[in-house]
Amino acid sequence: MIPGSNNIDEIFQIFLTESGKLESLVLDALSKSDLSISEIIQAYYQTTNVNSLAQMLVAQLESNNGASDSNLSKIKQTQKFISEKFDQNLHPFVIKYLADSIADMTKQLQSSSSSDQSKEDIENQAKNFEQLREMMSTKEFVEQYDKGLR
């Protein structure tokens, strides 16, 4: 038995569980034309989490010479999924979706007349400003991932 291999096995099991969650999140998001901010953030955090686990596992498996072909194969398969489904498909969709949503909401807010507004109109406009701020923050968050790809 390799020293520390139990720990590696436990981490690999976590990796498998988290990879499954990631696949589900990404495939679900790719099937939609409209995503919530929480779905977007969850997908990016999950991708970052799985990427980190994969890198750590590969380093540990290789340094302990305990790299089973099936474990490395699963890690490579997951990394390929992230590259093809997340980086090349979902990520560009999310960037465009957020940019378009921000532009639409900005136009909507700019076109609303500030005179003769009811209390309800003002409250709705405040909610729209809050949504716009949330979208812009999310776009900044997504762009940080984009910078990591380059």
Rank of each mutant, 00 (worst) to 15 (best):
N128M: 11
K21M: 02
F93P: 02
N124K: 14
E39G: 04
S101H: 05
Q125H: 13
D28G: 01
L98S: 00
E134K: 13
E18P: 02
N6E: 14
Q144Y: 09
S70F: 08
N7H: 11
V94H: 02
V94I: 15
A99P: 07
S68W: 08
I41T: 14
S52R: 10
K147I: 09
A43W: 00
N49S: 12
L16A: 05
Q42S: 14
K32F: 01
S118F: 01
T47N: 10
E143T: 08
F93Y: 14
T78H: 09
H91D: 12
E62T: 09
K80G: 07
Y45H: 08
Q144K: 15
G148E: 10
G4R: 05
M105T: 10
E123W: 02
T48N: 14
N64P: 03
N49E: 15
E23G: 06
I82F: 00
A43G: 00
N128C: 03
S101A: 15
R133I: 04
G4Y: 03
K80R: 08
S83G: 12
A103I: 06
M136D: 01
S38Y: 11
E23A: 03
L30W: 05
L72V: 05
T78M: 13
A29F: 00
F141G: 03
N128P: 00
Y145D: 04
P92S: 02
F15C: 12
E23M: 08
T48H: 08
L109R: 01
Q110W: 04
G4W: 03
D69N: 12
K119R: 12
E18S: 14
E134Y: 08
Q46N: 09
N64V: 03
K127L: 15
I75R: 10
E23K: 14
Y45V: 04
L25K: 02
A43K: 00
F15N: 10
S118R: 02
S38L: 11
S73G: 15
E84L: 07
L57R: 02
L57F: 06
S101C: 07
M1N: 11
N7W: 10
I14D: 13
Q117K: 09
K74G: 00
Y97N: 01
Q79L: 13
N89K: 13
E62L: 11
S31Y: 00
F15P: 15
L27Y: 11
D87G: 04
T138V: 03
K119C: 05
T17P: 04
L132R: 00
D100P: 09
S113E: 12
I40K: 04
N65Y: 11
K96M: 04
I41S: 10
D104F: 11
I11P: 05
K74L: 14
A54K: 07
E134C: 04
T106V: 07
M135K: 12
Q108V: 07
N51W: 07
S118D: 05
G66A: 15
M1R: 08
E84F: 04
L72Y: 06
